[in-house]
Every structure is written in structure tokens, then in C-alpha cells.
Computed example of a mutant assay.
Amino acid sequence: MSLMRKHKQRVLAEKAALKAQEEGRNTTTPREPQNSPVHILTTRLRALEVELKGLQSTDRKIKHKLAALPEFDAYLDGIVAADTKAQDDILVMLMIWHFDCVTLDPSLLQRTLDLADYALQSDMKMPDRFNRSLAGFVLAELADIALATSKLDDLTVEDRDLMVEHLNDALTWTKDHDMVDDIPARAYKAMGELIGESNIPDAISALEEAHRLDSKKAGVQTKLKQLKKLQEKQAENQDANKQNTGTNPQ
């Protein structure tokens, strides 16, 4: 898509959202003319979903979604810019697709979380076929991504700290939403695993919260014991250093 077409799509999407707000309806209710960006992209999204149903491979499905995402970028930008806080089924579905595609393209994570943040602020709903609430879905998906990230051998300090920041943000966004306890437990487990020895008190605090929320399935006891043992050893070393420092040489 050319830059001019992207700009036009973004502007039209923003106008459509504002018009829908004036009329007291959702952006994606079936009252848009057939040549409107909402109608065109809704039709395109439905066609893509039919194509996805014809694929058996999960990997192929994700690659198919990833290839299609740029078609909707300008629309999403327009909806967010309009900031009407109205339900937008296209945005919610594409947020879900973004989460799916992060496994193949980690650079999408910030865009994904921006969409999730806007959807949560707007109190949007998940499609009917999903059992989880929007908040539960967002936190669960991010927790799984963060847990996978914590296991990377080549994880940089910058990427680790950024992922911890993302988890803190998501926990803040979703703290007032009801969900099963194992979801925030996984988020706190991921946080503790990521922080690890870089900040032992913070890591222990996160892992203990994970255990409190889901003592049977959190699976943090071994890591907690390791960190607490290391914390005790560090405290012993500090005490020894203080004693040595306070001893005057003869």
C-alpha cells in the first residue's frame, strides 16, 4: 500500500470512528456504506479468516496473519487517533493477531501492547468465541511471551528490563479486572524469572506473589529457594566484609 493510500485510509478510519460516536454506535456496526474503509476492511478480514480455516498448520496460519497485518495498519492508526473509546471489532481481532505474530516477529510487541492498552482503556470486548475477557487474554498472552523470553540464552539486559516494564504495565492495566488467578501468577512468575539475580529482593517478591496466587501450579519453589539461598550468602559476605573493614591492622 502506498503512503498516500495509507494516509487516506487512516483519515477515513478516524472520520468513521468520530461519525459513529456522534450517532451513538460502535465503529464496526453494519451501517457503514459499502465503499467505507470499515466495510472494506471488515470484508477483507472475514475473507482472511476463511483462508485461515483452510490451513491446518499453526505456523502457516501465523505467517498468513503476519503477511496481512500491514493492510490494516493505517486503519488502526486512525481508530486510535480518533480516541472515541467505542467498541471496534476489527481492532480487537487484529490485536489478537498481533499477539499471535509476536512469536515470529518480536518487533511487533510494542505495537501489540499499544493496541491492547487502547482496547482496555476503551473497555472493548473479546469476540464471543473467546472464553477469556480482554484483560485476561492480554495478561495471559504477555505472560507466556515473557516466560519464553526469560529462557533465551542471548537475552540482553535492555530487552530483559523492557519486558519487565511491559509486565508491570500490563499488571497495572488489568489489576481491577476479574480473571482466574493463574494468569497474574504466570505474569509474576515471568517477572521473577526475568529479574533473577539482577535484583534478588524484587525477584523473590514477584515469585512469592506468583506462589500466593497459584500455589499448586505456579512452579516457583525451586527458583525461590535458589534466590533465597543466594541472598543469605550475599548477606553473610557483606557482614564478613564489614567485620574485616572494622578491624584495624596491627
Results as ranks from 00 to 15, higher is better:
Leu41Trp: 07
Gln221Leu: 12
Asp59Ala: 04
Pro201Gln: 13
Lys175Pro: 04
Asn168Asp: 13
Glu22Tyr: 04
Gln34Val: 14
Ser205Asn: 06
Met163Asp: 06
Lys217Arg: 15
Asn26Glu: 15
Asp83Met: 05
Asp181His: 00
His39Arg: 15
Pro249His: 05
Thr58Val: 02
Leu113Gln: 00
Met179Asp: 10
Ala86Asp: 03
His166Gly: 01
Leu66Ser: 09
Val50Glu: 11
Leu155Ser: 07
Asp202Asn: 02
Asp123His: 14
Lys8Ser: 14
Ala190Tyr: 02
Leu45Gln: 04
Trp173His: 08
Leu108Asp: 03
Val138Leu: 10
Gln9Ile: 15
Glu193Gly: 04
Leu3Arg: 15
Asp144Ile: 07
Met163Ala: 07
Leu134Tyr: 10
Ala190Pro: 01
Thr103Leu: 12
Val80His: 09
Lys15His: 06
Glu14Lys: 13
Thr156Pro: 08
Leu52Met: 05
Asp161Trp: 12
Gln221Asp: 09
Glu236Lys: 13
His166Tyr: 03
Leu134Ser: 08
Arg44Met: 01
Thr42Arg: 09
Leu230Thr: 14
Gln226Met: 12
Leu104Phe: 10
Ile90Val: 15
Pro30Val: 15
Leu152Asn: 13
Tyr118Asp: 03
Phe137Ala: 06
Asp202Lys: 07
Leu55Asn: 04
Thr222Phe: 02
Leu113Glu: 01
Glu232Lys: 09
His98Asp: 08
Arg60Cys: 00
Ala116Cys: 00
Gln234Arg: 10
Asp144Tyr: 02
Ala218Cys: 15
Asn244Ser: 05
Gly54Asp: 06
Ala235Cys: 07
Leu66Cys: 11
Leu69Trp: 01
Tyr118Ala: 05
Ser198Val: 08
Glu208Thr: 08
Glu158Cys: 12
Gly192Ile: 09
Gln243Trp: 09
Asp73Thr: 15
Leu76Arg: 09
Ile183Tyr: 00
Ala148Phe: 07
Leu3Ile: 14
Gln56Pro: 00
Asp176Ser: 06
Lys228Ser: 14
Met93Val: 10
Asn35Gln: 03
Ala187Ser: 09
Leu147Arg: 09
Asp202Val: 03
Leu48His: 00
Asn168Arg: 13
Tyr75His: 08
His166Leu: 01
Ala240Trp: 14
Leu139Ala: 03
Ala17Leu: 13
Tyr188Trp: 13
Lys225Gly: 00
Gln34Ser: 12
His64Tyr: 05
Leu91Met: 15
Arg129Asp: 14
Ile145Glu: 04
Val138Cys: 08
Met191Ile: 15
Ala143Asp: 01
Ile204Gly: 01
Asp169Lys: 11
Ser150Arg: 07
Asn131Leu: 01
Lys65Arg: 11
Ala185Pro: 00
His39Trp: 14
Glu208His: 04
Ala135Cys: 12
Phe130Thr: 13
Ala187Leu: 04
Leu94His: 03
Leu55Ala: 05
Leu12Tyr: 10
Leu76Met: 08
Lys175Ser: 08
Pro201Ala: 14
Gly54Pro: 03
Asn241Met: 11
Lys223Ser: 11
Asp154Ala: 13
